[in-house]
């Protein structure tokens, strides 16, 4: 039996794709070939923004989805999208695992949507990229035209940031930065290399805060139709998949960072925020986040509690990693 896995990623050789391929082979091996995973790359089966519905309806059997596109249907899962706390791939996904472990409402929500979560990974750290000057604090915007993430738009309004918020499509980002339609944009470190944004950005600031969590979902009916053994294989692989994905994400961030710093033609001026700078951004973001959580709590009251659980786990796991390193580095 072949299960279709739909991903927005291009089929390049990179650590996270290697993990996905490994997972697909491992499922096949451990089920003695009773399940075969066919990967459909780069939105060729379903568009990423329609992923949740595509999996729900069965066009794809499995695939990553972004909770942001379907917030009304999954207000709890939407809590996994952070602006506060560490954006480290491992910290975020491990914190989310602990926050949702035995948290009944989130399982009910997935079941209501006809989905069965079988793993998750994090986008990793956000970056501020720009052509004028590094955006180390909100004061650095100095009237620039900037492409902001949705909640940064509210933060900008609440704190009166000196900038013009410009909406352009992700596809136009490259030429927009090149030609000065925008002076800067918020993005993710892992996107910079594949989309060549280092060719047009002069300054990159690794903010260290905020990330997007990407749950991998399976169609609930397909899940229900699996044999006990097949279910067991997929469940056993979940923690391994999550950890490998976190590690791969960190490797990709490292590769991207190296590329940005040492590219023969397109090097950027690379900055990492200090703790004080990070706290300043977090303070500015706080009112926008409160509003966001309150909105989601209107749809499901459990959202507030989940948000608190996740935030405290983010701090706990970050502390742990600071003291003991990542699990694969521990003895």
């Amino acid at each position: 039996r072949t299960l279709n896995y739909a991903t927005p990623a291009p089929p390049t050789e990179r650590p996270s794709n290697d993990v996905l391929r490994w997972w697909a082979e491992e499922v096949e091996r451990r089920t003695d070939g009773s399940i075969e995973i066919k990967i459909h790359w780069l939105q060729s089966l379903i568009k990423f923004k329609d992923a949740a519905r595509g999996i729900q309806s069965g066009i794809a059997d499995i695939g990553p989805m972004s909770p942001e596109y379907t917030m009304a249907q999954n207000p709890l899962l939407a809590m996994s999208q952070t602006e506060l706390g560490s954006g480290d791939n491992y910290v975020a996904s491990e914190a989310w695992r602990r926050a949702t472990d035995d948290f009944e409402p989130i399982e009910q929500e997935a079941a209501r949507n006809g989905l069965k979560p079988i793993g998750f990974y994090s986008s990793g750290v956000r970056v501020n990229m720009s052509t004028t000057r590094p955006y180390l604090t909100p004061d650095d915007f100095k009237g620039d035209k900037v492409r902001l993430t949705p909640r940064a738009v509210s933060a900008a309004a609440a704190n009166d940031w000196d900038l013009t918020s410009v909406n352009i499509t992700f596809t136009d980002l490259y030429s927009g930065m090149e030609r000065g339609t925008i002076d800067g944009a918020q993005s993710y470190l892992y996107l910079m290399a594949p989309y060549k944004h280092n060719e047009v950005a002069k300054y990159v600031v690794e903010t260290g805060i905020g990330q997007s969590l990407v749950p991998v979902m399976m169609n609930a009916r397909v899940w229900g139709s699996l044999s006990a053994k097949e279910k067991q294989v997929i469940q056993e692989l979940e923690p391994v998949f999550n950890e490998k994905m976190a590690k791969a994400g960190l490797e990709e961030a490292e590769i991207a960072k190296n590329l940005l710093k040492t590219h023969p033609k397109y090097t950027v001026d690379y900055h990492v925020l200090t703790d004080e700078q990070r706290q300043l951004w977090e303070q500015h973001f706080a009112p926008a986040i409160d509003e966001y959580v309150a909105d989601m709590a209107k749809r499901d009251p459990a959202a507030s509690e989940l948000h608190q659980r996740f935030l405290s786990q983010l701090q706990a796991v970050e502390q742990e990693v600071r003291e003991q390193g990542y699990p694969w580095d521990r003895n």
Partner: peptide, 18 residues
Amino acid sequence: PPSILMILYAVFTDQSIA
């Protein structure tokens, strides 16, 4: 250029859009 198809191809095959 500019061309949407070229952007798509460059992203897909890991080539420089420029």
